[in-house]
Design a protein around this nucleic acid. Structure first.
Lengths: 180, 180
DNA sequence: AAACTAGTGGGACAGGTGTTCAACTAGTTG
DNA sequence: CAACTAGTTGAACACCTGTCCCACTAGTTT
């Protein structure tokens, strides 16, 4: 908490609106993809006038970048709580392509955007660097393969007709993960 | 070659235009992403009037779907010629995120679109089924991990600041690939 | 020759877009 | 109290969009 600014009520409400806009944007992305994001669609989703969207995020790019990096941070937090065992990891993956499908999709929209815009790359890679802090003890080549496989399992899970279950994922994960 | 229709010159030219439109669309996708595709941008790229784009592909969706499935088939053909050795596979991957970066990006735009539109999924999975015909002898779990890792290596290669080289990929690939 | 058909392309329609702006309200500070 | 500042909002700008339509050309068939 900041101490200097003596709690300006206007700014506090402003911050709340900022967050509401980000959340609304994320919902739009989950529902329609990045393509569906416009100042107007976001404002409609947040039930706010259009100009409030442009007030806080002058350009659409600002809004998109802010939303995707925020979403990435949230997702990384979620994975931070996963125990480094094949079962837990498999369960996390199954949830990512199941219950949290929309969020995971948003994450890969970020990947694609990051491929074209270098400034988004650190945010897109946050997930990878997080993994390296959890599984850093692995042998380098094995670790790289492991991380790549996690991404592949997720993205392939997104284009499967029936999202894979934790039970289906587990053998694959434990094969890639040095059991100890 | 069809035998029945006695070679209608008009139709032949039409087919050529169809292809030109697909190629132009792919160039637009490589340059600006799916977001940059419009009947007008494609027509401009192909140096054709807008109405020729809508004549051959009545809706934008038709055009996008045709382009992405066509591109996927081409990419699958490219991989079909790769020998199932770690070195060859690593070289293929390095080229995919290097020289053929644009094409690979298009492939993952297809993935993302397929996640939201079931009718695109078979096209998106062509690559995976092709792999299974080449590496079908592997043990199931190992194979799934291998395929997932290939996807992961590609997509991570796309958001790297410097695209990984075949030399960097090789150890990872050979670890995932039963040497024989 | 006429009849038919595939392709061609210019123009128009209604609607959505990003962004700017000026008038306004309501909190905060001196 | 007045001065200042942050936030709020509707309206307006110029532009791009998908799609349709109609008059037209040029190949093909009878």
């Amino acid at each position: 908490m900041p101490v200097r600014p003596p709690a300006d009520g206007r700014r506090a409400r402003g911050e709340r609106r900022r967050r509401a806009l980000l959340a609304a944007t994320l919902r739009v992305i989950e529902r329609e993809g990045v393509a569906g994001v416009s100042h107007r669609s976001v404002a409609r989703e947040a039930d706010l006038p259009v100009s409030s969207s442009t007030y806080y995020y002058a350009t659409l790019d600002d809004l998109l970048i802010a939303t995707l990096t925020w979403s990435a941070r949230e997702m990384a937090l979620g994975f931070g709580a996963v125990k480094p065992t094949p079962g837990s990891v498999a369960r996390f993956l199954a949830e990512a392509v199941g219950v949290n499908r929309g969020r995971t999709l948003a994450e890969y929209e970020l990947y694609l955007l990051a491929a074209r815009r270098p400034e988004l790359r650190p945010a897109a890679r946050r997930w990878i660097t997080l993994l390296s802090s959890v599984f850093g003890t692995m042998e380098p080549a094995a670790f790289l393969g492991f991380v790549a496989a996690l991404d592949g399992l997720l993205i392939q899970g997104l284009i499967a007709d029936f999202p894979p279950t934790a039970e289906q994922m587990e053998p694959v994960v434990s094969l890639l993960m040095p059991s100890r």
